[in-house]
Amino acid sequence: MNAIDHPLVAAYLDSVARETAGLPAERRAELLADLREHIEVSEARDDEAVRAVLAELGEPRTVAASALAEEGAPATAVTAVPTGPLAGRQAARIIAVLPALGGLLILGSPFAGALVLAIGLALLWKTPLWDARHKRIGTATALAVPVLLLLGGLFLAGGWVGPVELLVIGVFAIGVPVSGALVLTRALRV
């Protein structure tokens, strides 16, 4: 296996990319390309050699702090990105889908759905992986299900809803949150 294809290298580069979110896109791409080139030149093959090369480069946070300092970016940009077990692309995808999932769960279990929806929206607004516009889109699409259920209930109680209208409400109640999750997933800054 080539060193650049090693899972440790992929995790390292993803971490550096997250930590340097405050850099201009061109400088960030240049930094990542330099790191990739250094790793490729090392010709490390096994886990131990790859770990040694990555240790030589330094911790992702340290590499990012140096790059941010060179660019004059504020040091807070380094600490604003998520770290730990819920950091990275997989966690970002979970955060992107959680509000929509919570909205859809409301259809079957209102309490569990409301809980998942609240947690999902809190995580969405806390993470720096999306800009404010995408966070508003995620929030609006996730809240579509409760709003449509409320409107459907009001219209049903008033006798204004027939089977076709119920079908339209159902399609929107499922389609809108799913499309919101897709928008968030595509707009990831990881």
Rank of each mutant, 00 (worst) to 15 (best):
P110N: 03
V9A: 04
V53Y: 00
L148N: 03
A67G: 04
A187L: 04
E43S: 13
A100T: 04
L13D: 07
W160I: 07
L86Y: 14
L188C: 06
G120C: 13
A80C: 00
L143T: 10
A173H: 06
A118N: 04
L121Y: 03
L54F: 07
G22D: 04
E56K: 10
E40M: 09
A44H: 02
I119H: 02
W130D: 00
L150T: 14
V81F: 03
A96I: 04
G103V: 01
G175E: 03
V178S: 06
D131T: 05
L143I: 06
R186H: 00
L8C: 07
P146N: 03
A118L: 15
A52D: 13
E30G: 10
A10H: 15
P99F: 07
V145D: 00
I137T: 01
A80S: 15
K135W: 02
H38K: 14
I95C: 01
A3F: 04
R28E: 00
A173M: 09
G159F: 02
Q90M: 13
A140L: 13
A25E: 12
A142D: 01
G153P: 10
G103Y: 08
E71Q: 15
L54V: 03
L156Y: 13
D5P: 02
P85M: 13
I119D: 06
E56Q: 12
V78N: 09
P85S: 14
E30A: 15
L124C: 06
I137H: 02
L149K: 05
T139I: 00
L154Q: 10
H134S: 07
R186C: 00
F111D: 14
I119Q: 06
G113R: 01
V183K: 02
P7R: 00
A142M: 05
S109L: 06
V145G: 01
L54M: 05
E26A: 15
R45P: 04
R28T: 02
P85H: 11
V145I: 07
R136I: 11
L188N: 10
G22Q: 08
T62E: 15
G84M: 01
S179N: 07
E19T: 14
G153C: 09
